[in-house]
Design a protein around this nucleic acid. Structure first.
Length: 506
RNA sequence: GCCCCCAUAGUCUAGCGGCCUAGGACGUCACCCUUUCAAGGUGAAGAUCGCGGGUUCGAAUCCCGCUGGGGGUACCA
């Protein structure tokens, strides 16, 4: 009961996703954005996109466009953001920093005695840390010596041109507690002695995440902060900062991390193949990705897994978000993608497959009308075999490229069915060639009737006979159904390939 | 090291004190269908609900400890 009361959510809800443009967005980021978006939509609120580019060193030009493309791909649409603006523009922190927004509040904290100018340089800090380490035992918690100086003295030193950071005067004693919707009713308690004097504004004048995000969240009217679990340890700083600024706290909900496939740590860009654009490049459908991602940490009930975005929006609530980490499972994603591909009308799959065939060089760029039509006739043969659209080129290759036995093509040994020899196989192929040459009706149905009859005439089971012809025609043992393949390939090419196969073994 | 979070099959999860002889899905295996491969159908294996204590008539569900895993510990986000 208590839990229900706590998670009752009143509109209007405003949430944000605030990525840092340091590279492409990985799948974990997409998940976090998705949960924010689902939450906003479920409660009829707003979802805001904000670019947090306060890290000048790791900034990657163009990363913001890449990130936005990833979000749009899975169907996330923001109500306010860097590209479309909004009542709280700009939505890019470097621009907001230029406007002096963060400085204003830093000054306010300075004046109120909640912050101070720290003249300790990064090098000195590194040395202090190293010293603390050699002395062993105690962990290093930095408190600047200037924290007790009068503000005037700090200003005088700053006036000499000595570089400084602005640090938060974190309370030395006591504790901070806060609650988290995902982690339930229990409050998280942190002792202040575990904290240190956090940098608010860097020596460059740029704010640090901990400060900038909070100023913006307040200014932008963010009501709920849904972010990944890795932010839990720094939340006490944020709470303290809200209190120092006399601002209302948003509601926190820390989403479970997505763990690597082997379970050893969270997903990382360097070690894991999880860039979101990799998935559309390989032919994942955004609807499948959204569905899978929604299930990484959230569930609807004990049975339902396949849901459209609209259904997920309707059903998404935070009380069904899990606190424990979810391991990245590409097998499950692939399976789900296959289901979504099969659910799509075959003409649509044909259309969506075109770019992959173009990229593989199988058809022209852009595809001609004939090619498009041909792909439409081909797709039913592979539709249900596709788990990634990117597999289409390999499966359809034999319809666009020559197939021949020998060093430049397939291994002729593949033609010979199990327990049979080359001589017998040549017999099959010649018989098949003769039969097919006489065959005028080239429909799959007619071909099937004719070749089954041939099997009876030869006294062979369908398996070996069809298998040989399959290899002759496609160059591989695993291929779409034979008769449809022959029909799609056409009379001439089929006959030529069967003849070439017979010749190779003769 | 210190702090914080988490803990149901290999994986994702359902479960909010009796409906649980623990449900679903991925993966695995078998069988059916079948011209190969898939898809589809049927079924199986796989969880002493991490371990140990409590609380209770009754615990996967509540409490404590332990263990394990994860996260954090930057003038990164």
């Amino acid at each position: 009961m208590e839990l229900c009361a706590m998670i009752e959510i009143k509109a209007p809800v405003r949430v944000r996703f605030a990525p840092s443009p340091t590279g492409y967005l990985h799948i974990g980021g997409v998940r976090t954005a998705l949960f924010n978006w689902l939450f906003a939509r479920h409660y009829g609120g707003q979802f805001i996109l904000r670019i947090e580019d306060t890290d000048e060193k790791r900034f990657v030009a163009g990363a913001d466009d890449d990130i936005m493309a990833s979000l749009r791909w899975v169907g996330i649409i923001w109500d306010e953001g860097p590209d479309i603006g909004g009542p709280h523009a700009p939505y890019v922190q470097s621009q907001r920093s230029d406007q002096g927004i963060y400085k204003t509040y830093a000054d306010q904290l300075l004046a109120a005695g909640h912050a101070y100018m720290s003249f300790t340089t990064e090098e000195e800090l590194a040395q202090l840390r190293a010293e603390a380490e050699t002395k062993g035992l105690k962990s290093f918690r930095f408190r600047g010596r200037e924290r007790d100086w009068p503000l005037e003295r700090q200003r005088e030193l700053a006036a000499t041109g000595k570089p400084y950071t602005i640090r938060f005067k974190t309370p030395l004693a006591g504790e901070t507690r806060f609650s988290d919707l995902v982690r339930g009713a229990n409050e998280i308690v942190v002792q202040h002695e575990q904290l240190q004097d956090l940098v608010l504004i860097k020596a460059t004048g740029m704010p640090v995440y901990h400060f900038a995000h909070l100023v913006d969240d307040h200014l932008m009217g963010i009501t709920h902060v849904l972010r990944a679990e890795e932010w839990v340890p720094s939340t006490p700083y944020h709470v303290l900062l809200y209190q120092a600024l006399a601002w209302n706290l948003p509601v926190f909900a820390h989403l479970p991390v997505i763990l690597r496939q082997d379970g050893k740590g969270k997903l990382s860009k360097r070690k894991d193949d999880v860039a979101s654009n990799r998935f559309w490049e390989r032919g994942y459908l955004p609807e499948a990705m959204a569905n899978y991602l929604a299930l990484q940490g959230w569930s609807y009930d004990d049975k339902t897994e396949l849901m459209s975005l609209a259904e997920i929006v309707e059903r998404f609530t935070l009380d069904r978000v899990q606190a424990s980490g979810a391991r990245w499972n590409p097998d499950k994603l692939r399976d789900m993608n296959g289901i979504y591909i099969r659910k799509l009308p075959v003409e649509v799959v044909a259309e969506r497959t075109l770019p992959f065939l173009v990229k593989a060089g199988l058809i022209a760029d852009p595809p001609t009308e004939e090619e498009r039509a041909y792909v439409r006739t081909l797709l039913p043969l592979v539709h249900e075999r596709l788990e990634e659209l990117g597999q289409a080129p390999e499966l359809l290759e034999c319809f666009f490229k020559p197939v021949q036995p020998g060093p430049d093509g397939y291994d002729p040994a593949l033609l010979i069915p199990k327990k049979l020899d080359a001589a017998q196989t040549v017999g099959f192929l010649r018989a098949a060639h003769a039969t097919l040459t006489a065959q005028l009706d080239w429909s799959a149905e007619a071909l099937e009737v004719r070749l089954r009859a041939l099997g009876d005439e030869l006294g062979v089971k369908p398996g070996p006979l069809f298998g040989t012809v399959r290899v002759a025609v496609s160059g591989r043992t695993v291929a779409p159904p034979l008769f449809a393949m022959l029909a799609a390939l056409g009379r001439e090419r089929s006959l030529a390939r069967v003849a070439a196969a017979a010749a190779a073994l003769a």
